[in-house]
């Protein structure tokens, strides 16, 4: 397992998280999470539902603030940045949200060209050319006049990706890119992620619990479990991990240390009102 060095990032490190802690209503959802991502690398953050993956992503892209720890993007400590300070950094990365998060009042073309209209002084003709190029990159040439309601879920994801790379960012964050997609479309999204890495040297941080995709695209993987980093290493290191929780997760088995349900005795006590429901898997 990789043990990350704390402190400011070394050269070539695009994303660095040091001892992130986050609590919601007294519940610690992130507990000293640390990792780093090199330029051009694909880091997969994986784990079960409720392990803190999405919270980690939201902290990295500035939608939440960590309670403790710090986050470095492009060698800047963005931990205490307010919205105005973060705005300059945000133009250097793109985000693909789980459902695509397209604006339903706009066409596909208007969605993709929105960042270009708002953050550049380019001529409208040039913006239209770039928009069509981005749609071509994700395999949606000719779809610019359709509305989001007129396209499928997989297409929405691809349009979301085209929008995320509209400003040619150095870094792209993906929130569950394969969620809700059929195996073929999931494979298409995986290929797009790898394509962007190969052709544009884009660094990627991918939150997913889709194991096939994760092992296909990852250069490094971080597995979160109950808010902590359980495993951190290359795909081979993760595959060969002797931690039973890691093995249960990557094999997708219902049996193992991650319980399907609470114990029978605790369940009976809860029904009778003797014990409060607790989920304690340790």
């Amino acid at each position: 397992m990789i043990i990350p060095e704390l402190g400011p990032p070394k050269e070539n490190i695009i994303v660095k998280a040091n001892n992130l802690v986050k609590e919601f209503e007294g519940r610690r959802v992130l507990d000293n999470v640390s990792f780093e991502v090199k330029k051009g690398e694909v880091l997969v953050i994986m784990g079960g539902s409720g392990c803190g993956k999405s919270t980690t992503l939201r902290i990295l892209i500035g939608l939440e603030k960590a309670d403790e720890g710090d986050v470095w993007l492009f060698n800047e400590n963005i931990t205490a940045y307010d919205d105005k300070q973060f705005d300059a950094i945000r133009k250097r990365f793109g985000v693909l949200f789980q459902s695509g998060a397209l604006f339903n009042s706009m066409t596909v073309g208007e969605n993709v060209s929105l960042p270009l209209h708002q953050h550049t002084e380019l001529d409208e003709n040039v913006i239209q050319i770039i928009m069509r190029m981005k749609l071509e990159m994700v395999g949606l040439t000719g779809f610019e006049h359709l509305k989001p309601a007129e396209i499928s879920g997989g297409m929405k994801k691809r349009v979301g990706l085209a929008r995320a790379i509209a400003l040619d960012p150095e870094l792209v964050f993906y929130d569950e890119p394969s969620a809700g997609l059929d195996p073929v479309m999931s494979a298409v999204i995986d290929e797009l992620i790898l394509d962007l890495k190969k052709k544009m040297n884009i660094t990627s941080v991918v939150v997913t619990h889709h194991m096939d995709s994760a092992f296909k695209i990852a250069d490094k993987m971080v597995m979160l479990y109950q808010g902590r980093v359980l495993a951190y290493g290359t795909p081979d290191e993760i595959r060969n991990s002797d931690d039973p929780v890691v093995q249960q997760f990557i094999s997708g088995s219902a049996d193992g240390p991650i319980p399907y349900r609470t114990s029978r005795d605790l369940y009976l006590q809860t029904l009778a009102g003797i014990a409060e429901e607790r989920i304690d898997t340790r």
Binding site: F86, Q98, S99, A101
Partner: peptide, 17 residues
């Protein structure tokens, strides 16, 4: 509905207030 569909988050992530 935009909040639920993460469209507001998408706006903020693009530095669009």
């Amino acid at each position: 509905t935009m909040v639920v569909a993460e469209e507001i988050d998408a706006l903020r992530s693009m530095s669009l207030h």
